[in-house]
Nucleic acid binder design. Structure first.
Length: 361
DNA sequence: AAACCGGGGCG
DNA sequence: CGCCCAGGTTT
C-alpha cells in the first residue's frame, strides 16, 4: 500500500515522472569535477561538500575554476582543517558571502575531530555553514542517503511540474515540498534523483525561456499543460535598498606600497581588506584627510580626486569617490589591521573584495 | 519571521 | 544598465 499517511501539499506525482527524470539524467548529466565516484561512496564527500557550499552562490560554470584552485591548494579535509583563515579567504576572493569560507574551515576542524565524515543529514546539519539544503545534498549525493535537497532549482522544477501557486519563499512551503519529494524518491537512488532534479533545473527547466520541448516531463508537466510556466514558481520576498557614499583613498608610501586596512571581524565583508575610506561624510575629502592623519599619526597632503566608482550589493549601493594621496614622509602604523602592501602581497596574500579591487584595475 | 550577507550573468 | 539569481545565520 502506498502513502497511507499522505497529507503533503501536492497529490501524487504524475505516473512515470521518476523514471523519465532518471533516464533523462543518465543520458544528459554533465561531467563535473565533484561528481567522480568516491572510493567507498557514491561521490567524494569532501568534494561534494565544497562544491555545494560554492554552488549556493554561483552558477556551476563560474564555480569550476574556483573549485579546481581550492582542491589544488586543499586536496583533503586535513589540509583545509590546518589552513589559516586568511588563506581560505584568499581562495574565496571574488565569490562573496565570505562567512561561508570561514564556516568551511571551522567545519573542517570539527569533522577532523569527529574522525569520520558525517553521513546523515541530521549529523551534517550540526556543522557550521550547513543548513537543511546542504545537509540533504551531501547526505544524498555523497552517501546515497534518502534525504531531500531542495534548492532554487528544485523549487522551480517542482512548482512547474505540479503547477503550484504556493509561495516558495515561505519556509513552510519548502518543508512541504521536501516531505512530498520523499514520498516518491526511489529508495535505491536518492543521490541520482536529487542530482537529476537540480540538473533538470540548471539545463532545461531554467528560470527564463526553459526548453520545454526537450524536457523529459513535457508530457506530464502541469504548468506546461496550463500555460503557466512563466508564472512559476511564485516568490514573494522583496528587499529594500539603500545608497551609501564612500570616499576611498589610494595612499602609497615612498616605496610605492599601498595602504590597506582590515575590516572588522563581523558585518559586511568581515575580515577582508579595504582601501582606507570614510562613509556618508559631507566633506568627504576633508574627512578622509582627517581620518588618515589620525591613523598615520602625521600630516598628509590634500586628497586629489581621481575618479568615481560604483558597487552594487543586494541591499546597498556604494557610490565611491576615489582620491590619491602619495606619502613622502614616513608613517607609523598603529595596529596589525593596517599594512603597507606591495603589489605581490596584494595579489597573493590579502583578500580584497571586488568593490575595491576593481577600483585599482 | 525578517534582516543580513556579495558578486556574476544576462538581455 | 537594470534586473535576476540562493541558502545559512543572526536578530
Amino acid at each position: 500500500m502506498k502513502q497511507t499517511t499522505s497529507s503533503t501539499i501536492f497529490p501524487a506525482p504524475p505516473d512515470g515522472a521518476a523514471d523519465a527524470l532518471l533516464s533523462w539524467f543518465s543520458e544528459n548529466k554533465r561531467d563535473l569535477p565533484f561528481r567522480r565516484p568516491g572510493e567507498t561512496t557514491r561521490a567524494d564527500p569532501y568534494r561534494v561538500w565544497i562544491s555545494e557550499i560554492m554552488a549556493q552562490q554561483t552558477q556551476i560554470d563560474t564555480l569550476i575554476p574556483y573549485f579546481e584552485r581550492f582542491i589544488a591548494v586543499f586536496p583533503t579535509l586535513k589540509d583545509l582543517a590546518e589552513a589559516s583563515e586568511e588563506a581560505v579567504l584568499k581562495l574565496w576572493e571574488g565569490l562573496g558571502y565570505y562567512s561561508r569560507a570561514r564556516n568551511l574551515r571551522k567545519a573542517a576542524i570539527q569533522i577532523q575531530a569527529l574522525g569520520d565524515f558525517p553521513d546523515t543529514a541530521k549529523a551534517l546539519a550540526k556543522l557550521p555553514g550547513i543548513g537543511p539544503y546542504t545537509a540533504g545534498a551531501v547526505a544524498s549525493l555523497a552517501f546515497n542517503q534518502k534525504a531531500a535537497a531542495v534548492d532554487g532549482n528544485v523549487l522551480r522544477v517542482v512548482s512547474r511540474l505540479m503547477d503550484s501557486p504556493a509561495d516558495t519563499a515561505l519556509p513552510a512551503v519548502r518543508k512541504a515540498i521536501s516531505a512530498w519529494l520523499l514520498t516518491w524518491m526511489p529508495e535505491d537512488r536518492p543521490g541520482d534523483f536529487n542530482e537529476a532534479l537540480m540538473e533538470l533545473g540548471a539545463l532545461v527547466c531554467t528560470p527564463k525561456s526553459p526548453s520545454c520541448l526537450i524536457c523529459p516531463w513535457r508530457d506530464v508537466c502541469l504548468a506546461l499543460k496550463n500555460g503557466t510556466i512563466g508564472e512559476r514558481p511564485v516568490k514573494s520576498k522583496r528587499m529594500k535598498h539603500r545608497t551609501e557614499k564612500i570616499a576611498a583613498a589610494i595612499v602609497t608610501d615612498a616605496a610605492g606600497r599601498l595602504l590597506i586596512h582590515r575590516r572588522p571581524s563581523n558585518g559586511l565583508l568581515a575580515g577582508l581588506w579595504e582601501l582606507p575610506n570614510v562613509t556618508n561624510s559631507k566633506e568627504s575629502a576633508a574627512a578622509l584627510k582627517r581620518y588618515l592623519e589620525s591613523v598615520l599619526d602625521t600630516t598628509v597632503s590634500d586628497p586629489v580626486f581621481i575618479k568615481n566608482g560604483r558597487h552594487v550589493f543586494t541591499h546597498i549601493t556604494w557610490q565611491i569617490a576615489v582620491y590619491q594621496l602619495p606619502l613622502h614622509s614616513s608613517a607609523t602604523l598603529k595596529s596589525r589591521d593596517w599594512v603597507f602592501a606591495d603589489r605581490d602581497d596584494l595579489k597573493t596574500r590579502y583578500p580584497l573584495p571586488t568593490a575595491f579591487s576593481k577600483l585599482l584595475a
